[in-house]
């Protein structure tokens, strides 16, 4: 394209500016290449993401709202959605507490091995979920390193809902740490000093000055961890035991429906999960724009 443009009469910048002016899309610019890059990006996005997702929604729409409702309220689907929903929420709460502590320690304190620990936080992003799944199952089984510590107390972790909780804590942790950490880093120490000058104890300052400022970021991180946990599959199925009504997660039920060639049933459960993810995404966006308005950063 560039060679032709070089040899041709009109310099590319001018050509694009003229075209931009005539269409108003994009706004006039001296830079070339909008047409080809925008065109390719939109085509690729449509082919890979938008059309396939539209097909899923269309498939579910065939069932109608009452059809989806009927699928959603069959006892087994309802149980799986409940397992996914509640255990994801519990894992997000655990991560809210420990993720904040980890972020706090990484930002505010110095100790040996801190950089290593900081890098390790991203492990769940980098480690393939199947590897995490079998590793956690091996660790938390009754004969595993950790599971054997609980076995004498008759507590089973792997192959019970507790195992699902462990896996979802694992995959959700970096979301909380990585959203809280930068906000904590940018937090103005002046307000803490002001609070101390006014006679607040350290605990009061942390609880009433620092934590409220962290709250939007923390909520965003928790929502992201929750959204990821609801859809998680690889790390969970190895440690869950996958008992219907007890430890069967919604994504696994989709796979089961597909293996039975019940495409409509699979699409219905998938649509419910998609709707759930969409609502969470909206909540995250609302939180972030609130946070930007209130604190000047997301």
């Amino acid at each position: 394209m560039s060679d032709a443009a070089l040899r041709g009469g009109t310099p590319p910048g001018v050509r694009w500016r003229l075209r931009g002016l005539s269409r108003g899309f994009p706004k006039p610019s001296a830079l070339p290449g909008f047409g080809i890059t925008f065109g390719f990006a939109i085509t690729y996005l449509s082919l890979i993401v938008l059309i396939p997702l539209a097909v899923l929604v269309a498939r579910a729409a065939d069932l109608g709202l009452d059809g989806i409702w009927r699928v959603a309220t069959t006892p087994r689907v309802l149980a799986a959605l409940e397992v996914s929903f509640f255990i994801s929420a519990a894992a997000a709460l655990v991560n809210a507490v420990f993720g904040t502590i980890v972020a706090w320690v990484l930002v505010r304190y110095d100790f040996p091995g801190k950089r290593l620990l900081d890098a390790a936080v991203d492990l769940p992003f980098a480690l393939p979920t199947a590897v995490a799944g079998i590793a956690l199952a091996a660790l938390y089984a009754t004969n595993g390193w950790i599971g054997s510590l609980f076995a004498p107390f008759d507590i089973k972790i792997a192959f019970t809902p507790l195992g699902i909780l462990v896996a979802l804590i694992f995959i959700g942790l970096p979301f909380v740490v990585r959203t809280v950490q930068p906000v904590l880093q940018d937090l103005d120490r002046d307000v803490e000093e002001a609070s101390a000058t006014l006679g607040a104890t350290r605990a009061q300052t942390v609880l009433r000055v620092v934590l409220p400022a962290l709250a939007p970021a923390l909520l965003t991180g928790v929502a992201m961890a929750f959204a990821r946990a609801v859809g998680e599959y690889g790390s969970v199925i190895f440690i869950a035991g996958n008992m219907p009504f007890v430890s069967e997660i919604a994504p696994l039920l989709i796979v089961t429906r597909l293996e039975e060639f019940d495409y409509a049933g699979a699409a219905a459960i998938a649509t419910i999960m998609l709707a759930l993810a969409f609502v969470t995404l909206l909540a995250i966006n609302a939180l972030q724009s609130f946070s930007r308005r209130r604190f000047g950063h997301a």
């Binding site: 696994l252 699979a266 993810a277």
Partner: peptide, 22 residues
């Protein structure tokens, strides 16, 4: 829209192609 695949469950990401080409 570019970020959309991140909020879709991996299983659903596979499912859409089964619904399309299965």
């Amino acid at each position: 829209l570019i970020d959309l695949p991140f909020s879709v469950s991996p299983v659903v990401s596979g499912l859409v192609f089964v619904l399309l080409f299965g």
